[in-house]
């Protein structure tokens, strides 16, 4: 709006510059803190609701949940950052406070990028009983069929995940097999044309389950024992 070549004004003393910057920084700091405080409760509530919605979707019937960390030293309620080597998972309970299942995140590299999924494991049936996609960047129309393809999702109604005799790992590695060649309960029947994505899902679940379940199995009572208290504090309005 004004001519570009304005005459150069005399240099400003440093004190004035520092004063201005300090003033600006103060005003801005106050603004940020106010915004943070004002939105904190809503943001935390949003995050919890989103997580619960995802967990409750893979474990139907669940109404409350608690977060735990499985480490080589045992299972402890999750507080603060996850310790090194620890695996975070969520235990979900029904209205009476009985343990329904465990949900954990699995991830593996698919066709385009990492595919992150949430799977549910049922201690009674020793099987994976639910599946949901958290994030993916697979080709729309092909790789993203893992979210909708009914035949594929049927794999996760009862995907065998029982432990081996020595309780150190899975009895049979979970893996995806080409469409139509599923012979065993621990195999995932892949979607034709989206084999790479399906294999990533199988690999991710296998990695996560084979590391987490051996830590989890001996401590199952801990999850059940806490159920009574969990129902009270984990519930969201």
């Amino acid at each position: 709006m004004t001519p570009v070549a304005a005459p150069v004004p005399p240099a400003t003393p440093s004190a004035a510059m520092i004063r201005t910057l300090a003033l600006v920084a103060t005003v801005c700091g106050v603004l940020i803190v106010t915004a943070y405080q004002g939105t904190l409760t809503a943001v935390t509530a949003n995050k919890r609701v989103a997580l619960e919605r995802a967990v409750f979707k893979v474990i139907p019937g669940a109404v409350t949940m608690r977060e735990f960390v499985a480490t080589s030293a045992g299972v402890v309620p999750a507080e603060g950052p996850t310790p090194a080597g620890g695996l975070r998972f969520h235990a979900a309970y029904d209205r009476a406070g009985a343990l329904l299942g465990v949900a954990a995140e699995a991830a593996a590299t698919g066709y385009a990028d990492v595919v992150r999924v949430l799977y549910a494991w049922s201690p009674e049936r020793q099987a994976i009983t639910g599946f949901g996609v958290i994030a993916h960047r697979e080709t729309p129309g092909i790789g993203d069929k893992i979210i909708t393809d009914a035949a594929f999702l049927k794999n996760f109604e009862a995907l065998d995940a029982s432990l081996s005799e020595d309780m150190k790992t899975l009895a049979n590695a979970i893996r995806a097999v080409p469409r139509g060649s599923k012979r065993n309960p621990w195999e995932i029947d892949a979607i034709a044309g989206a084999t790479v994505t399906c294999k990533a899902v199988g690999r991710g679940i296998n990695d996560s389950a084979s590391r987490m379940l051996p830590l989890l199995m001996p401590e199952l009572d801990k999850l059940r024992g806490d159920a009574g208290t969990a129902a009270g504090e984990g519930a969201t309005p």
Binding site: T39, A42, V43, N46, K47
Partner: peptide
């Protein structure tokens, strides 16, 4: 500020 606001409105 807008970053916080959007997270509060819709995750």
């Amino acid at each position: 500020v807008v970053d916080y606001l959007i997270a509060a409105i819709s995750l």
